[in-house]
């Protein structure tokens, strides 16, 4: 029983991290139909930028702020100056994001070198909670909580605000939305920037536990794609449900049948696709 509770909590932590990454990925796909291979790079750049700022200012808050805004700005530039030129050419756009992924990877190596590092824990969240033999780190609980807050904010933005309404219109039919006077181009840029910022935020949140290292850009990306495919491309609700499904299955799979951990991860995706080819909440 203790074992199941611990593994469930672990699964929720994985889900929280995945949600931060996958929500951006799915929004970008929903609005622009871009399969963004560089999304993992934003996740990586987030923790690297935060590392630099935290080393100078010893403030995790400033580090997070700097990471999210710098990476969001980088995302905005990438979309405005490069991806925009290839609108409605999904293959060209995908190759472009792939190119950026390699570029960011080499740039990170040149700037920060290849030594792995971790971010410090926030001092209030050190240590672990112990109750009836269940040991769970405080910080992981905090990440789950933060991801839940981000989820609620995103949901409110999407469902309750004008920009959310425009966004949903653009997801459903970009041409019609443009026809009603919505600036889809600007919206795309903002969504891409927000997606990049969310990924960077995910990187920073994972920073004290997973840290930063060469190759991390492609570590979580396949999992994030599985989440997006299970949940349905373009759906926030799908990203949330997909993250929880993948996070739990991945944890229990690794714990119970480690030899089959890839099978247990991809089997649900295959089953979902067989029954519902658009994913759980996808409409495409």
């Amino acid at each position: 029983m203790i074992y199941i509770i611990t593994q469930t909590l672990n699964g929720l932590f994985s889900a929280a991290l995945l949600f931060l990454i996958a929500s951006g990925l799915t929004l970008v796909f929903g609005v622009m139909r871009i399969v963004n291979i560089a999304h993992g790079s934003f996740y990586m750049l987030g923790v690297y930028v935060a590392y630099t700022i935290v080393a100078r200012t010893h403030s995790l808050f400033l580090g997070t702020l700097a990471a999210v805004s710098a990476v969001a700005a980088a995302g905005f530039v990438v979309e405005r100056l490069f991806l925009r030129r290839f609108a409605s050419q999904p293959l060209a756009q995908m190759m472009m994001t792939m190119g950026f992924a390699l570029l960011f990877r080499d740039a990170a190596f040149m700037i920060w070198g290849g030594d792995p590092f971790t971010l410090p824990y926030p001092s209030a969240l050190r240590g672990s909670i112990e109750a009836n033999d269940i040991v769970f780190p405080m910080y992981r609980l905090f990440v789950v909580f933060v991801a839940a807050v981000v989820g609620v904010v995103l949901w409110a933005l999407n469902e309750k605000t004008l920009i959310g309404a425009k966004l949903r219109a653009a997801v459903d039919d970009a041409e019609m939305a443009a026809g009603t006077g919505i600036n889809v181009a600007l919206l795309s840029g903002l969504v891409f920037a927000a997606g990049a910022g969310l990924a960077a935020f995910g990187g920073v949140m994972g920073g004290p536990i997973l840290g930063g290292y060469p190759g991390m850009d492609l570590d979580l990306l396949p999992l994030a794609f599985v989440v997006v495919i299970i949940g349905g491309m373009g759906s926030l609700k799908g990203a949330l449900v997909g993250s929880i499904v993948v996070g739990l299955i991945d944890n229990f799979g690794k714990a119970l049948v480690p030899e089959l951990s890839y099978f247990t991860l991809f089997a649900p995706m295959v089953i979902v696709l067989a029954i519902k080819p658009t994913g759980l909440y996808g409409r495409v």
């Binding site: 672990n10 994985s14 992981r140 536990i209 997973l210 570590d219 979580l220 690794k254 714990a255 480690p258």
Partner: peptide, 14 residues
């Protein structure tokens, strides 16, 4: 045994 791609050790530590 953990796969080479491991980054979250929680399922193994438990």
């Amino acid at each position: 045994w953990c796969p080479l791609s491991v980054h979250d050790f929680a399922p193994y530590l438990a």
